[in-house]
Design a binder for these strands. Sequence first.
DNA 1: GTTGAATTCAATCAACTGATTGATTGATGA
DNA 2: TCATCAATCAATCAGTTGATTGAATTCAAC
Lengths: 197, 197
Amino acid sequence: MSEQNQKYASSDTRRREIAAAARAVIVEKGIDGLRTREVAARVGINIATLHYHVHSKEDLLRLVIEAMREEFVEQGRYIDAQALDPLAKLKLEIGEYKELIVHKPDLLPLFEELGKRARTDPVLEPIVREIRIGWHRRFVGLLDEGKANGQFRATLDAEAGAHMIVGALVAFQYKPRHLLPIFDSVADEIIRSVIAT
Amino acid sequence: MSEQNQKYASSDTRRREIAAAARAVIVEKGIDGLRTREVAARVGINIATLHYHVHSKEDLLRLVIEAMREEFVEQGRYIDAQALDPLAKLKLEIGEYKELIVHKPDLLPLFEELGKRARTDPVLEPIVREIRIGWHRRFVGLLDEGKANGQFRATLDAEAGAHMIVGALVAFQYKPRHLLPIFDSVADEIIRSVIAT
DNA sequence: GTTGAATTCAATCAACTGATTGATTGATGA
DNA sequence: TCATCAATCAATCAGTTGATTGAATTCAAC
């Protein structure tokens, strides 16, 4: 008697299933396109069952964003564990961002959607801000290090440079898939724009 | 008897009013937050009157995007009319973008919203694509000119550089207002990243 | 003042939406 | 087997949404 044949599932299991389905819907249809009935249908439960496990649509969003935040934290942890010089680290940051686009194609669109909602949601806003500012600061930090060790040009404004780099990377999230090969040449151009000559 | 006291208005006038109200709502609440009843209320007419003048919500969107397109075309025309070298032109493009953010704070958010919709709307998509690609090409063009006349560094990949610059500029649309002073330092960094040393 | 067309409105429709209610079912432990 | 609690469901609620209908009003021309 496998678990799959059980009609009932524990609340933990259900919440996970519900969050995953909600995430998929948000990525496909945007946050305003999220419908609790659709989420319930995707999980294979009744709408009232969904409400039993997740009190409200608002709680559902919280669930999704919390899982997303964990994913970003994991990503940053991995990169920090590498012992690299600033130039190599910049390349790694950029490469890992590309990996996200390629292998987790739903994470960044999810962040975009939740980021948009965060503009008017006081509970989401600090979470999204923390992720954004955290990421930006990583670039400021490593640009500063690269200047200090002579790898990056002395005229580089680390703060402004970080804005420029982050902007260029984020823009790839919105580009059609067939433009992905250009990512590498943009990555190279970013490197050329900061290295000391 | 001024026009303002007239209850009835010509269809041209109403359509303009309706389009303007719809635009404001889209900017405030996103495209998914656009409600025909709210648009009607803002214009001061009944929902059925709105449908009399604008057949459907879809037509309403068409109206809004068409007006937006015109604004972008005007912008490009103004810049093209200036006789400048590539570096000065790059500075002008960047400066004019900042002017948009400051003086037409609703235009770029509107483009963002309509751009998002365009991903799944075959009628909007070519319009949005035309605006995007047109703008990108302007940067490619002037980066190429700058390389040719020696103002920009010889290692510059114009295509990739344009992606980088556009991305950095667009990112300012999403930043909180208090970060606007950083725009100028990012603009300077963009210039430093491309000029020949 | 009358006429006819344009414009406007209240009421209504059908469908959708987040959420609730109360009955039923499933699972577990004694 | 029985009791209890967790989990599930169909039906329902109140409100929202784009859109329609038919009557009323307004305006311009004669």
